[in-house]
Design a protein around this nucleic acid. Structure first.
Length: 307
DNA sequence: CGTTTTTGACCTGCGC
DNA sequence: GCGCAGGTCAAAAACG
Protein backbone atom coordinates (compact mmCIF):
# COMPACT_ATOMS: atom_id res chain seq x y z
CA UNK A 1 0.00 0.00 0.00
CA UNK A 2 1.78 2.98 -1.03
CA UNK A 3 0.57 6.35 -0.19
CA UNK A 4 -1.58 8.07 -2.71
CA UNK A 5 -1.93 4.92 -4.65
CA UNK A 6 -5.48 4.21 -5.38
CA UNK A 7 -6.77 0.97 -4.10
CA UNK A 8 -10.12 0.96 -5.73
CA UNK A 9 -11.85 -1.63 -3.68
CA UNK A 10 -15.52 -1.98 -3.77
CA UNK A 11 -17.35 -2.30 -0.57
CA UNK A 12 -20.86 -3.39 -0.09
CA UNK A 13 -23.12 -1.09 1.82
CA UNK A 14 -25.88 -3.19 3.32
CA UNK A 15 -28.03 -0.19 3.96
CA UNK A 16 -28.05 0.94 0.41
CA UNK A 17 -27.67 -2.51 -0.94
CA UNK A 18 -25.04 -1.28 -3.25
CA UNK A 19 -21.36 -1.33 -3.82
CA UNK A 20 -19.21 1.67 -3.63
CA UNK A 21 -15.53 2.18 -4.18
CA UNK A 22 -13.22 3.20 -1.48
CA UNK A 23 -9.57 3.59 -0.96
CA UNK A 24 -7.28 2.12 1.53
CA UNK A 25 -3.99 3.59 2.36
CA UNK A 26 -1.24 3.18 4.80
CA UNK A 27 -2.85 5.67 7.05
CA UNK A 28 -4.89 2.86 8.43
CA UNK A 29 -8.06 4.15 7.00
CA UNK A 30 -10.02 1.01 6.53
CA UNK A 31 -13.59 1.26 5.48
CA UNK A 32 -15.05 -1.01 8.04
CA UNK A 33 -14.02 1.29 10.79
CA UNK A 34 -15.10 4.31 8.97
CA UNK A 35 -16.22 6.95 11.42
CA UNK A 36 -15.78 4.42 14.14
CA UNK A 37 -19.44 3.78 13.97
CA UNK A 38 -20.61 0.21 14.05
CA UNK A 39 -23.50 0.98 11.83
CA UNK A 40 -21.08 2.18 9.27
CA UNK A 41 -18.96 -0.84 9.28
CA UNK A 42 -19.69 -1.87 5.82
CA UNK A 43 -20.25 -5.37 4.90
CA UNK A 44 -17.73 -6.09 2.28
CA UNK A 45 -18.33 -8.47 -0.44
CA UNK A 46 -16.80 -9.85 -3.48
CA UNK A 47 -17.78 -7.51 -6.16
CA UNK A 48 -16.99 -5.76 -9.35
CA UNK A 49 -16.72 -7.75 -12.49
CA UNK A 50 -16.91 -10.85 -10.41
CA UNK A 51 -20.20 -11.46 -8.80
CA UNK A 52 -20.11 -12.87 -5.35
CA UNK A 53 -21.54 -16.10 -6.57
CA UNK A 54 -18.39 -17.76 -7.85
CA UNK A 55 -16.51 -16.74 -4.82
CA UNK A 56 -19.12 -18.09 -2.55
CA UNK A 57 -19.17 -21.36 -4.31
CA UNK A 58 -15.47 -21.44 -3.87
CA UNK A 59 -15.97 -20.83 -0.23
CA UNK A 60 -18.49 -23.58 -0.05
CA UNK A 61 -16.17 -26.02 -1.70
CA UNK A 62 -13.52 -25.01 0.72
CA UNK A 63 -15.80 -25.35 3.66
CA UNK A 64 -17.30 -28.66 2.82
CA UNK A 65 -13.87 -30.07 2.44
CA UNK A 66 -13.89 -30.65 -1.26
CA UNK A 67 -11.30 -28.00 -1.69
CA UNK A 68 -8.14 -27.71 0.26
CA UNK A 69 -6.67 -24.64 1.71
CA UNK A 70 -4.13 -23.96 -0.95
CA UNK A 71 -6.64 -24.44 -3.66
CA UNK A 72 -8.80 -21.90 -2.01
CA UNK A 73 -5.97 -19.49 -2.06
CA UNK A 74 -5.45 -20.05 -5.71
CA UNK A 75 -9.11 -19.71 -6.31
CA UNK A 76 -9.04 -16.36 -4.70
CA UNK A 77 -6.22 -15.26 -6.81
CA UNK A 78 -8.00 -16.20 -9.94
CA UNK A 79 -11.56 -15.50 -9.14
CA UNK A 80 -10.88 -12.20 -7.55
CA UNK A 81 -8.29 -11.13 -10.02
CA UNK A 82 -4.67 -10.88 -9.34
CA UNK A 83 -5.29 -8.24 -6.85
CA UNK A 84 -8.01 -9.41 -4.69
CA UNK A 85 -8.73 -8.66 -1.16
CA UNK A 86 -10.80 -10.72 1.10
CA UNK A 87 -11.80 -9.25 4.32
CA UNK A 88 -13.66 -11.00 6.97
CA UNK A 89 -14.24 -9.88 10.41
CA UNK A 90 -13.18 -11.81 13.31
CA UNK A 91 -16.56 -11.03 14.03
CA UNK A 92 -15.89 -12.98 11.04
CA UNK A 93 -17.32 -15.69 12.99
CA UNK A 94 -20.35 -13.59 12.60
CA UNK A 95 -20.04 -10.76 10.25
CA UNK A 96 -19.01 -11.59 6.82
CA UNK A 97 -17.09 -9.19 4.82
CA UNK A 98 -15.44 -9.96 1.63
CA UNK A 99 -14.09 -7.44 -0.66
CA UNK A 100 -12.13 -7.51 -3.76
CA UNK A 101 -10.06 -4.96 -5.38
CA UNK A 102 -10.94 -3.58 -8.72
CA UNK A 103 -8.42 -4.75 -11.07
CA UNK A 104 -8.26 -5.36 -14.70
CA UNK A 105 -5.61 -7.97 -14.49
CA UNK A 106 -6.77 -11.45 -14.26
CA UNK A 107 -3.59 -13.30 -14.64
CA UNK A 108 -3.88 -16.82 -13.37
CA UNK A 109 -1.36 -17.70 -10.80
CA UNK A 110 -0.20 -20.69 -8.98
CA UNK A 111 0.31 -18.66 -5.94
CA UNK A 112 -1.10 -19.50 -2.66
CA UNK A 113 -1.32 -17.71 0.53
CA UNK A 114 -0.96 -18.07 4.17
CA UNK A 115 -3.80 -17.57 6.49
CA UNK A 116 -1.70 -18.08 9.46
CA UNK A 117 -4.08 -16.82 11.97
CA UNK A 118 -4.24 -19.39 14.62
CA UNK A 119 -6.74 -19.96 17.26
CA UNK A 120 -4.19 -18.82 19.70
CA UNK A 121 -3.99 -15.50 18.04
CA UNK A 122 -7.70 -15.19 18.05
CA UNK A 123 -7.81 -15.85 21.71
CA UNK A 124 -4.98 -13.57 22.52
CA UNK A 125 -6.48 -10.85 20.51
CA UNK A 126 -9.65 -10.97 22.40
CA UNK A 127 -8.02 -10.61 25.69
CA UNK A 128 -8.94 -7.04 26.11
CA UNK A 129 -12.29 -6.60 24.70
CA UNK A 130 -14.35 -8.05 22.02
CA UNK A 131 -11.90 -8.15 19.29
CA UNK A 132 -12.43 -7.27 15.75
CA UNK A 133 -10.25 -8.99 13.29
CA UNK A 134 -10.36 -8.92 9.58
CA UNK A 135 -8.73 -10.79 6.85
CA UNK A 136 -7.60 -9.10 3.75
CA UNK A 137 -6.29 -10.94 0.82
CA UNK A 138 -4.21 -8.40 -0.82
CA UNK A 139 -1.92 -7.55 -3.57
CA UNK A 140 -1.38 -7.22 -7.13
CA UNK A 141 0.44 -10.45 -7.09
CA UNK A 142 1.14 -11.36 -10.61
CA UNK A 143 2.57 -14.71 -10.00
CA UNK A 144 4.38 -16.82 -7.58
CA UNK A 145 7.96 -17.85 -7.53
CA UNK A 146 9.45 -19.75 -4.77
CA UNK A 147 12.51 -17.75 -5.54
CA UNK A 148 12.03 -15.25 -2.87
CA UNK A 149 15.51 -15.51 -1.59
CA UNK A 150 17.67 -12.53 -1.72
CA UNK A 151 20.84 -14.40 -1.05
CA UNK A 152 22.33 -13.00 -4.13
CA UNK A 153 21.83 -9.57 -2.80
CA UNK A 154 24.91 -7.83 -1.64
CA UNK A 155 24.90 -4.45 -0.11
CA UNK A 156 27.94 -2.86 -1.59
CA UNK A 157 29.25 -5.13 -4.22
CA UNK A 158 27.44 -6.76 -7.09
CA UNK A 159 25.46 -3.70 -7.84
CA UNK A 160 25.91 -4.58 -11.42
CA UNK A 161 24.20 -7.85 -10.86
CA UNK A 162 20.78 -7.48 -12.22
CA UNK A 163 18.26 -8.87 -9.87
CA UNK A 164 15.38 -10.86 -11.16
CA UNK A 165 12.21 -8.99 -10.67
CA UNK A 166 10.36 -10.95 -8.10
CA UNK A 167 6.61 -10.94 -8.29
CA UNK A 168 4.99 -10.35 -5.01
CA UNK A 169 3.23 -13.10 -3.20
CA UNK A 170 -0.41 -12.72 -2.40
CA UNK A 171 -1.05 -11.20 0.94
CA UNK A 172 -3.59 -11.61 3.63
CA UNK A 173 -4.05 -9.00 6.24
CA UNK A 174 -5.70 -9.51 9.55
CA UNK A 175 -7.14 -6.54 11.27
CA UNK A 176 -7.35 -7.21 14.90
CA UNK A 177 -8.37 -5.14 17.79
CA UNK A 178 -5.63 -5.63 20.27
CA UNK A 179 -3.27 -3.77 22.47
CA UNK A 180 -0.57 -6.21 21.62
CA UNK A 181 1.29 -5.36 18.47
CA UNK A 182 2.87 -8.65 17.66
CA UNK A 183 0.07 -11.14 17.93
CA UNK A 184 0.88 -14.75 18.55
CA UNK A 185 -0.09 -16.77 15.53
CA UNK A 186 1.65 -20.01 16.23
CA UNK A 187 4.61 -19.42 13.99
CA UNK A 188 8.00 -18.13 14.91
CA UNK A 189 9.08 -14.86 13.42
CA UNK A 190 12.24 -12.86 13.28
CA UNK A 191 12.01 -9.16 12.99
CA UNK A 192 14.16 -7.82 10.21
CA UNK A 193 13.10 -4.28 9.90
CA UNK A 194 11.01 -1.44 11.11
CA UNK A 195 9.98 1.62 9.25
CA UNK A 196 8.08 4.72 10.00
CA UNK A 197 4.95 4.88 7.94
CA UNK A 198 3.99 8.05 6.27
CA UNK A 199 0.89 9.64 7.72
CA UNK A 200 1.02 7.35 10.65
CA UNK A 201 2.36 7.83 14.10
CA UNK A 202 3.01 4.13 14.36
CA UNK A 203 5.91 2.28 12.80
CA UNK A 204 5.55 -0.80 10.66
CA UNK A 205 7.50 -3.86 11.64
CA UNK A 206 8.71 -6.50 9.23
CA UNK A 207 9.00 -10.13 10.21
CA UNK A 208 10.19 -13.25 8.48
CA UNK A 209 9.33 -16.79 9.40
CA UNK A 210 12.30 -18.35 11.17
CA UNK A 211 11.66 -21.80 9.81
CA UNK A 212 14.36 -22.82 7.39
CA UNK A 213 13.34 -22.46 3.82
CA UNK A 214 10.09 -20.78 4.69
CA UNK A 215 9.91 -17.44 3.01
CA UNK A 216 6.73 -16.20 4.60
CA UNK A 217 6.83 -12.65 5.75
CA UNK A 218 4.52 -10.53 7.75
CA UNK A 219 4.14 -6.88 8.45
CA UNK A 220 2.67 -5.53 11.60
CA UNK A 221 1.42 -2.04 11.96
CA UNK A 222 -1.13 -0.18 13.92
CA UNK A 223 -3.93 1.67 12.30
CA UNK A 224 -3.36 5.35 12.52
CA UNK A 225 -7.04 6.07 12.51
CA UNK A 226 -7.86 3.56 15.16
CA UNK A 227 -4.77 2.75 17.19
CA UNK A 228 -6.52 -0.10 18.86
CA UNK A 229 -6.42 -1.97 15.60
CA UNK A 230 -3.41 -3.99 14.62
CA UNK A 231 -2.97 -4.75 10.95
CA UNK A 232 -0.99 -7.91 10.37
CA UNK A 233 -0.22 -8.65 6.76
CA UNK A 234 1.01 -12.08 5.77
CA UNK A 235 2.82 -12.68 2.54
CA UNK A 236 3.56 -16.11 1.20
CA UNK A 237 2.77 -19.57 2.33
CA UNK A 238 4.32 -21.57 5.10
CA UNK A 239 5.91 -24.77 3.91
CA UNK A 240 5.69 -26.31 7.33
CA UNK A 241 3.31 -26.80 10.16
CA UNK A 242 2.93 -24.33 12.89
CA UNK A 243 5.33 -25.23 15.68
CA UNK A 244 2.78 -24.07 18.16
CA UNK A 245 -0.23 -25.80 16.77
CA UNK A 246 -0.70 -27.99 19.77
CA UNK A 247 -0.06 -25.27 22.24
CA UNK A 248 -2.30 -22.90 20.41
CA UNK A 249 -5.06 -25.41 20.12
CA UNK A 250 -4.98 -26.22 23.76
CA UNK A 251 -4.98 -22.62 24.69
CA UNK A 252 -7.78 -21.73 22.39
CA UNK A 253 -9.69 -24.77 23.45
CA UNK A 254 -9.86 -23.47 26.93
CA UNK A 255 -11.29 -20.20 25.85
CA UNK A 256 -13.40 -21.21 22.97
CA UNK A 257 -17.04 -21.99 23.23
CA UNK A 258 -17.73 -25.71 23.09
CA UNK A 259 -19.15 -25.57 19.62
CA UNK A 260 -15.87 -24.33 18.26
CA UNK A 261 -13.45 -26.31 20.31
CA UNK A 262 -13.29 -29.17 17.95
CA UNK A 263 -12.40 -26.76 15.24
CA UNK A 264 -9.63 -25.36 17.30
CA UNK A 265 -8.04 -28.71 17.68
CA UNK A 266 -7.40 -28.71 14.01
CA UNK A 267 -4.66 -27.01 12.18
CA UNK A 268 -5.08 -23.29 11.86
CA UNK A 269 -6.35 -23.44 8.31
CA UNK A 270 -9.22 -25.58 9.44
CA UNK A 271 -9.99 -23.27 12.20
CA UNK A 272 -10.08 -20.65 9.54
CA UNK A 273 -12.60 -22.77 7.76
CA UNK A 274 -14.89 -22.56 10.70
CA UNK A 275 -14.60 -18.85 10.72
CA UNK A 276 -15.29 -18.74 7.05
CA UNK A 277 -18.24 -21.00 7.51
CA UNK A 278 -19.84 -18.60 9.88
CA UNK A 279 -18.83 -15.83 7.64
CA UNK A 280 -20.60 -17.54 4.82
CA UNK A 281 -23.65 -18.12 6.92
CA UNK A 282 -23.85 -14.48 7.58
CA UNK A 283 -23.57 -13.78 3.95
CA UNK A 284 -26.47 -16.04 3.22
CA UNK A 285 -28.61 -14.38 5.80
CA UNK A 286 -28.03 -10.98 4.43
CA UNK A 287 -31.09 -10.19 2.30
CA UNK A 288 -33.42 -8.50 4.73
CA UNK A 289 -31.50 -6.61 7.26
CA UNK A 290 -27.90 -7.56 7.00
CA UNK A 291 -26.61 -5.42 9.75
CA UNK A 292 -29.16 -6.49 12.26
CA UNK A 293 -28.39 -10.08 11.46
CA UNK A 294 -24.76 -9.29 11.71
CA UNK A 295 -25.07 -8.02 15.20
CA UNK A 296 -27.74 -10.44 16.28
CA UNK A 297 -25.40 -13.21 15.40
CA UNK A 298 -22.68 -11.89 17.55
CA UNK A 299 -22.54 -14.65 20.02
CA UNK A 300 -20.91 -13.40 23.18
CA UNK A 301 -19.33 -16.76 23.55
CA UNK A 302 -17.38 -16.12 20.42
CA UNK A 303 -15.78 -12.99 21.61
CA UNK A 304 -12.93 -14.71 23.35
CA UNK A 305 -13.07 -12.75 26.49
CA UNK A 306 -10.52 -13.65 29.01
CA UNK A 307 -11.55 -13.92 32.59
C1' DC B 1 26.92 -18.23 23.18
C1' DG B 2 23.18 -18.58 20.14
C1' DT B 3 19.16 -16.05 18.94
C1' DT B 4 16.50 -11.99 18.42
C1' DT B 5 15.88 -7.02 18.14
C1' DT B 6 17.33 -2.48 16.90
C1' DT B 7 18.50 0.79 13.63
C1' DG B 8 20.85 3.36 10.02
C1' DA B 9 22.02 2.59 5.39
C1' DC B 10 20.91 0.89 1.13
C1' DC B 11 17.88 -0.70 -2.69
C1' DT B 12 13.84 -0.36 -5.55
C1' DG B 13 9.67 1.22 -7.60
C1' DC B 14 6.75 4.86 -8.66
C1' DG B 15 4.95 9.44 -9.45
C1' DC B 16 6.00 13.91 -10.96
C1' DG C 1 16.09 12.36 -13.64
C1' DC C 2 14.82 13.30 -9.04
C1' DG C 3 12.69 12.70 -4.77
C1' DC C 4 9.93 10.09 -1.84
C1' DA C 5 8.35 6.11 0.52
C1' DG C 6 8.29 1.23 1.19
C1' DG C 7 11.04 -2.71 1.82
C1' DT C 8 15.40 -5.11 3.08
C1' DC C 9 20.07 -5.76 4.76
C1' DA C 10 23.36 -6.40 8.19
C1' DA C 11 26.25 -4.87 12.05
C1' DA C 12 25.76 -3.95 16.71
C1' DA C 13 23.29 -4.42 20.82
C1' DA C 14 20.26 -6.82 23.77
C1' DC C 15 18.43 -10.85 25.55
C1' DG C 16 17.84 -15.49 27.56
Amino acid sequence: MSEGKSNPYNIFDPFNDSFSPFRTSNDGNYPFFHNNHPQQQHLLEATQDHSSAPLNSTFRAFLDGSMDYNTLSRAFDMSCCSSSEVISTDDSRKGASILSKNNNQSTPKNSSSALSSSSEEMATVGSEDKDKGKIIQDEQSTGCHEDQGREEKSKNGDKSKKKEKRPRQPRFAFLTKSEIDNLEDGYRWRKYGQKAVKNSAFPRSYYRCTSQGCMVKKRVERSFQDPSIVVTTYEGQHNHHSPATLRASNFAGMLMPPNLRSTCLMEPPYFQQELLAQLLQMENNRPDDPMSKLYQNLDPGLQFRLP
